[in-house]
Amino acid sequence: MKKAHIILIDDQIDVLSALLQDLKPFRERFILDDCQSADEAYELMEELEVSGEQIALIISDHIMANKNGIELYADLAHDQRFEDVRKILITGQASHEDTIDAINNASIDYYISKPWSIEELHKVVRKMITHWIFDHGLNHKDYEGMIDTDVLLKRSKAAGDR
């Protein structure tokens, strides 16, 4: 089974490494790609898209040196190729306006504040993965250990109701 990609973005390499380390358990079914800028990530995503690779989830830092996470996600929201990629924003510092902007213009799926706990991170990632699996009609049994049961129940019921 071909592994889909999870892209991680943070301009500070030590934080990026911490993310990589924390998400190691997901390496069984996903390829973790680390990027140090929004531009690097976009370039990578285009390469992957061209080679027919799937991108399930992006986890990006908010405040970065050049383009910030919200700006990236806003761009992606308007890019048809990447509409279905799940988006998590990590932030250590956000104002009301940023939050509104993130929700309205960037359609992010989830917000995590720094410092994150590994349990919280895993829980959110599992939720996102479960959603993505259902979005693409994949078999959740192939992703044992990475499923969120609440989401599973909700989405199964919704699928069954149709």
Partner: peptide
């Protein structure tokens, strides 16, 4: 030296 290899380079 820490993590001096950039993500792009590592890839």
């Amino acid at each position: 030296q820490g993590r001096y290899v950039s993500s792009a380079e590592a890839r």
